[in-house]
Design a protein around this nucleic acid. Structure first.
Lengths: 215, 215
DNA sequence: CCGCGATGTATCGGGCCGATACATCGAACG
DNA sequence: CGTTCGATGTATCGGCCCGATACATCGCGG
């Protein structure tokens, strides 16, 4: 229902207009933890789809003052994408409705990456939905490791064990984040630095720093 | 080149012939750590593809003695899939050639799940390839956290930090497994239990148990 | 007796990926 | 001074796999 790329592009273009290549770089930097690298084979079709829906507009890059180097080398046209008012509305709507697909690995990851543009109540709802989902996966793995252990070989069991470990770790991570949200603090900030970002939007104020255990 | 499902199905059908529903259950149990649940929308097309290629055969389930309840309720035909000699050959070939796609998350996971049918040299090669890939991802995340930290908000940074942590943890896990392989032992076996499995195949002997640190 | 969950087969639309092709530009190297 | 090489940049194609959906049987409990 809410493809990952659509959400991410609408979120990124609210920072600044960009052309495809730049968009891919920013996307890769922002989602590097959950996605290897966004393919052009999905980026460009998505951009066309967004433009058809009216969420973004595309415009060929114009020379700065329209009199500078008019036909020297005739720059290869870079297409710059800009988000529209309807696009911003669409993004807000996608944030508001948190369906089951919001809690799978990539869905949660991309939503989390734009938590700075998400209100606290929704943040909390998503974190708890994700925790529930991971807890279910954890129980499934425990079942397999308990009941069906003798049917599986040592390597498969080791894989389940590693997966179970990752689940338990993520649950703990989520608990920490949830506790932080409840107390109205921002996530663990290793050094004191108030997030700059000239607020062009209704993004939350991202309150002061805090500290968990790991420095 | 080597789709995940094709590999997993060929591997599973070497244990026993199965029908679709059963196959999905086994698949989900075996790959539960890396995949939520295999969809029929990919399972059945893949089965048809495998049959067209000659790797498997499909046969309608026959009543046991051909005289028992011939037309009582006319059982809904369950289709049983059986691997062929060419299928086993294909599986061995897929194991032998470890391309770059073998080292991404799902590719590695499914290969690892069938390590009991993989020779030790290939196991070692795959583990090291995976480690290299994870190390690269880790370096990428460190770069972002170091150089581009001030450009990103606190939530995005926290996501990267969590991803980095997962990378470091997996590298350590892989190191342990590699060390175990080098010393000729099986993966961490919490209680002494020799893997049963009547060897119908050229699968390695799965040597005796060992113990790392975590009991 | 009726619904409900487990078993069971199957299709359809669509997102996303990997490979590929093609073009420009600045810098490095011979 | 020419050439190669990597970064920048746009775009398409085939294919894997998923989520939703439809339909049918069986046993069990209400």
């Amino acid at each position: 229902m809410a493809p990952v790329l659509e959400f991410a592009i609408l979120g990124l273009l609210q920072e600044a207009p960009m052309h495809g290549y730049e968009l891919r770089k920013e996307l890769t930097a922002k989602l590097g933890a959950i996605r290897a690298a966004i393919s052009y084979g999905s980026l460009y079709p998505t951009l066309r789809r967004l433009q058809a829906a009216g969420w973004i507009t595309e415009a060929a890059e114009t020379p700065a003052t329209a009199e500078e180097v008019p036909a020297l080398t005739s720059r290869r046209g870079r297409v710059v994408y800009t988000i529209t008012a309807e696009g911003k509305e669409r993004f807000a709507q996608l944030i508001a409705q948190a369906g089951p697909e919001t809690y799978d690995d990539t869905g949660f990851g991309v939503h989390f990456a734009f938590f700075a543009r998400t209100d606290q109540a929704t943040r909390l709802r998503i974190l708890e939905g994700r925790r529930r989902k991971i807890e279910e996966r954890r129980e499934g793995l425990r079942d397999v490791l308990g009941r069906a252990a003798e049917r599986l070989d040592a390597y498969t069991l080791e894989l389940q064990r590693h997966g179970l470990d990752a689940c338990e770790r993520e649950v703990r991570w989520l608990e920490e984040l949830i506790a932080n949200e409840r107390s109205g603090r921002a996530p663990t900030a290793p050094d004191s630095r108030t997030v700059g970002g000239r607020g062009d939007n209704d993004s939350p104020p991202t309150p002061g720093t805090s500290r968990t255990e790991r420095p």
